[in-house]
Design a binder for these strands. Sequence first.
RNA 1: GGUGCCGUAGCUCAGAUGGUAGAGCAAUGGACUGAAAAUCCAUGUGUCGGCAGUUCGAUUCUUCCCGGCACCA
Length: 288
Amino acid sequence: MPMSRRLLIILGPTAVGKTDYSISKALELGSPVISCDSRQLFMNMSIGTAVPDASQLSAVKHYFIQTIPVDQAYTAGDYERDAIALVEKLFDEGHETLVMTGGSMFYIDAVCNGLDDLPDGDPVLRAELWARAAEGGVAPLAEELKSLDPLTYSQIDTQNTQRVIRALEGCLVSGKPFSAFKTGARRQRSFEIEKIGLNRSREELYERIDGRVLNMLDAGLVEEVRSLLPYRGCQALQTVGYREIFDYLDEKYPLEEAVRLIQRNTRHYAKRQLTWWRRDPSIKWLDL
RNA sequence: GGUGCCGUAGCUCAGAUGGUAGAGCAAUGGACUGAAAAUCCAUGUGUCGGCAGUUCGAUUCUUCCCGGCACCA
């Protein structure tokens, strides 16, 4: 008799209340919590990423919480590989239902649908391309992409430097058009996927966000960020809550302005999350 | 009670000697194939406090009313 294997993904905008909900769901189902959060993955970033607290972490086994050094690069592709490996292992050990939770839209989609085998980036080349963009703008890079890969050029936002460089990098590293690697095919998974979307009224969500930022300050956000100053340039620190405090430490603006910006940028993030998920009909929404 | 000032977008305010209005902040919609808490694109949402008068036309001028603030009693 085939064992049923189900991955229950609890998603929702930041600060909606995923942590508590997923822990109680995990306890109910006898599952660990598999985090799907591109920032809680990193070590030493606990206050600003609202990592579960000690009692929450001891209530149920958590995966992918604070496991990677902040100066290490980690991508959605890495997460797809690591998460699928873990999930397969846990299913093989006898779990029927596994609880995954998080707000990283792209990571969730990588787990559900898989990413194509696109060429890896080359850090040196990437740095060169960014230097060119800083000097002459995106336009010349976009033109170069147009000649190497007209299809990608026609599909992406050519004002989006990050996208243009990523595609150009793919072309230059592989010697082929970046688009040649895209199949758009969904990867077959060995388990069922169910998605629950947690939501609240916009007003309530924004109040929770604003309040949570103040709590982070009380909890010592400024000191946490100060301790991460040496890693400021790392990918992990390109994050709401950290960049604004770095600027405050530079005396670019007062603390209250940093707080205001963190609150606003977090609200913007929540809005982007909701935009992403709005087009996903497989999510069952639940108002908290 | 009297006098003066103010009432315009969610907030702070600007404005037209009469032709139904615009800045900042906030907000909203969208995109997304290895940086994704990143990156990028788009958008003004308004009975101009209310009733009436003058006028071809009033948010603008006038009367009155309502609300707020200040000062004088």
